[in-house]
Each structure stands twice: as structure tokens, then as C-alpha cells.
């Protein structure tokens, strides 16, 4: 899976599902600016699990990895590479 595909999936989920029609971009600091709150983070993790078959270990759910859609996608892309989908 390419990093672009992951980015597109996350963008759509955040804008359509979490925000119900948002206009968030790849580099918006969605967590620092409060767009995505704690419930939003939980929903994102659920989405990542079903969409990318990836369980993010709790210790990796950090501000650094989830700061923007771009950092999330970069992190997830690494994970997919490291642990191929079974």
C-alpha cells in the first residue's frame, strides 16, 4: 500500500466521518488545534484497524506520530512495511 493511498483514506475518514464535512489538509495540525479530540483519536484507531488491518501498539499512539494526516500516513506506511498484512 502506498503512502498516498493511506493519506487519502485518512483524509476522507477525518473529513467525512469525524468532522462530518471537514476541509482538513495533509499538514494541518489536527491534534494540536483540537480538530481531533480524544474520541476522534479512538475512532481513527478503529478506522486504521479495519481499513489497513493494522493495530497500532499503544506506545506508538503519540502526538509525534499523529500530529498531522501526513505524519500519521508516514508512520502507518512504515508499520505496514514492517509488519506485512497477514
Amino acid at each position: 500500500m502506498s503512502v498516498e493511498m493511506i493519506q487519502a483514506g485518512l483524509l476522507k475518514f477525518v473529513n467525512d466521518e469525524i468532522l462530518g464535512g471537514g476541509t482538513v489538509g495533509l499538514d494541518d495540525e489536527v491534534v494540536l488545534d483540537g480538530t481531533v479530540d480524544s474520541l476522534g483519536v479512538a475512532r481513527l484507531l478503529g478506522f486504521i484497524e479495519t481499513e489497513f488491518s493494522l493495530q497500532v501498539p499503544p506506545e506508538d499512539v503519540t502526538i509525534e506520530n499523529f500530529r498531522t494526516i501526513a505524519t500519521m500516513a508516514g508512520f502507518l506506511h512504515q508499520q505496514v512495511g514492517a509488519e506485512p498484512v497477514q
Binding site: 491534534v31 494540536l32 483540537g34 479530540d37 483519536v41 499503544p58 499512539v61 503519540t62 502526538i63 499523529f66
Partner: peptide
């Protein structure tokens, strides 16, 4: 900070 409260690991 607000964002720290949203990330258990942080």
C-alpha cells in the same frame, strides 16, 4: 497541554 491529554502514551 490539551494534545497530551488526548494521547495516553504521551
Amino acid at each position: 497541554p490539551e494534545e497530551v491529554t488526548r494521547f495516553p502514551a504521551s
